[in-house]
Write a protein that binds this DNA or RNA. Structure first.
Lengths: 347, 347
DNA sequence: GTGAAAGCGCTAACAC
DNA sequence: GTGTTAGCGCTTTCAC
């Protein structure tokens, strides 16, 4: 069990000082091409890879990005077995982007509701010393967390948040997405279009509602009775759909603020003997894998989670590398995936 | 942006030496209860959390576990949007277990087919210095990887592998699971039971086939024509089911070695006008979220990925902590989840 | 352009 | 039981 190869071994092999090797690794200036080549050859020959821990100790970077997700909601998704595509997409976007620069992304769960969020987060920061933090809803808009990060001067990204303020705000245009969804239904001839909102804890819930309301108002179709509150859970979707169907003039189409609630709406509608999309059209938000397997498969707004996370990671790494003039916010394009849950309004 | 609080600060606050604080943190011996309490008070007061990087540098532990997954298959699952519950369940099981002991799990992708697997893995080991490595299929049985780990004397766990050898072998009893599935179908009166195998690259594929064959042979029902090769992909499932239905005496029930292939079998059967489960019963392996949303929902063997990963993490951490007499293998219980894709054999 | 020295925050080994 | 010393593998700062 031989000792690991260190920067020293490389320096000896290349016949240069330890410091020169460090310069080559870090793409630093002041190394002659010839020396650089020799060092790189030694690195390749010995199969050297710098130790993250040592780099963190010596220098000012840890090559670690910390991604924080809501504990309850994430664990609930995992145990319910309903699939948490969110985490997968974050890993894909974040991990792959990190790998391009020798970074790693560490995934951690934090309890938003807890009174000691700050302590939890501070603990993770102290243990890991990340170069940047990626916040996801609802953490993205939690001042307890964002203020802490700001005070520490630690770069961070707020995914799914469009609020101005410290940290990079990376989001899709939720309002525009809801507008697009509603407009599509209007184009299909629908005049009574219901909306099931997301949880108040998420800023994007309001944005989605606004976009929907906008689109309807533009055509004189808005009616507050068509808006029913949800909290992203299946149960709240059932309740919402039930309430909408109980209206004197029930909707012929519904936009649900996430997939679970859309699936719930589908279930309730089917239970009432309604055919989808003949009697009722449904558009959902997020487009996690499960909506492809419902009957019929749901038309949905695809939330670009992987792309948002990749953007976040990219900006954080560049910020840490000293790059300046980085955009403080980014809107990542979404798309409307038309499947079989939408059709012309009934005659 | 104040300096982080270090072990020194705690030592000063508690009026003891730095080393005593270290002893308290590490639950070491030789600290009087009174001193220990004073140190803990100082830790709480200052909100101290030890730095992982520093612990790694000074000591012999990094408090990091490395989980290695197959690159192609994982990315394919992520991009196809068909849901890779595997990763989620690993995170849930591994991360939560790690957290109990102050560990972190780092998730990494490695290309099994690449000629430089060893270099890839060695690079990750050098960078991270993990205290243990969690291997998943097909890495679990890749000698290029297991030998490397063994040479380094690094504790590792092979998930889904029952092969004896170095490293902890954590698996479910794949043969028994297949036996249970086949027996259930036999109990339902089926006499012609097909089987779609998994990829040869996975040792568990053979185990599942063996269990199935066992059960059928015990009742004199085994017929090699009923076994058709698959590779875990949807396409191979379609091909396999098509082949089975083309038999002179087609099966009235099918066991597929994973969910994708079972879903493919369902699709093909529906295409032929067969009703599930009236004309054909289907049992799948793995029980990822999607099988709950097919029509009908599939009866499936649930693979306890979270539990296996938790076990793996637990054993690795204990091994690193110097615990001895740990079991070299562990069989984690599976279960047969009966849904609507199984029923009595047609008359 | 290159090298030498100091130090990051801890733990291991040993002294007291 | 507790303190002291050395050193982990790097980067930073500064000298040449």
């Amino acid at each position: 069990m031989r000792r690991a190869v260190t920067i020293k071994d490389v320096a000896a092999e290349a016949g240069v000082s330890l410091q020169t090797v460090s310069r080559v690794i870090n793409d630093g200036p002041n190394v002659r091409a010839e020396v650089k080549a020799r060092v790189n050859a030694a690195i390749a020959k010995l199969g050297y890879t710098p130790s993250l821990a040592a780099r963190r100790m010596g220098g000012s970077r840890s090559y670690l990005l910390l991604a924080l997700n809501d504990r309850d909601r994430t664990i609930e998704g995992w145990t319910s077995g309903e699939g948490t595509d969110w985490v997968d997409q974050m890993l894909m976007g974040g991990m792959l982007e990190c790998a391009r620069r020798g970074y790693r992304m560490i995934f951690e769960l934090v309890d938003t509701h807890s009174s000691h969020v700050e302590r939890e987060v501070a603990g993770a920061l102290a243990a890991l010393n990340p170069d940047g933090v990626i916040l996801t809803p609802p953490h993205s808009d939690n001042p307890l967390i964002t203020d802490l990060l700001e005070r520490r001067g630690l770069p961070f990204a707020r995914i799914g948040s469009q609020t101005p303020g410290a940290g990079f705000a990376i989001a899709m245009d939720d309002a525009e997405a809801a507008r697009v969804a509603a407009r599509r239904l209007i184009d299909l001839g629908h005049r009574r279009i219901g909306f099931i909102t997301g949880s108040d804890e998420y800023a994007l819930s309001a944005a989605r509602l606004d976009g929907y309301a906008d689109a309807l108002k533009a055509h004189g179709l808005f009616d507050p009775a068509l808006v029913t509150p949800g909290d992203f859970s299946f149960q709240s979707g059932e309740a919402g759909m039930t309430a909408l169907l109980a209206l004197a003039q029930p909707p012929t189409a519904v936009v649900a603020s996430n997939d679970q609630m859309a699936l719930a709406a589908l279930r309730v509608a089917n239970g009432r003997g309604l055919s989808i999309p003949q009697d009722l059209s449904i558009i959902s938000f997020d487009d996690t894998p499960i909506v492809r397997f419902s009957h019929p498969p749901l038309t949905a707004i695809r939330q670009p989670v992987a792309a948002m996370t990749a953007q976040a990671a990219n900006l954080l790494m560049r910020a840490k590398a000293g790059e300046t003039d980085l955009p403080m916010g980014r809107l990542v394009p979404f798309s409307l995936i038309e499947r079989a849950s939408t059709g012309p309004a009934p005659a």
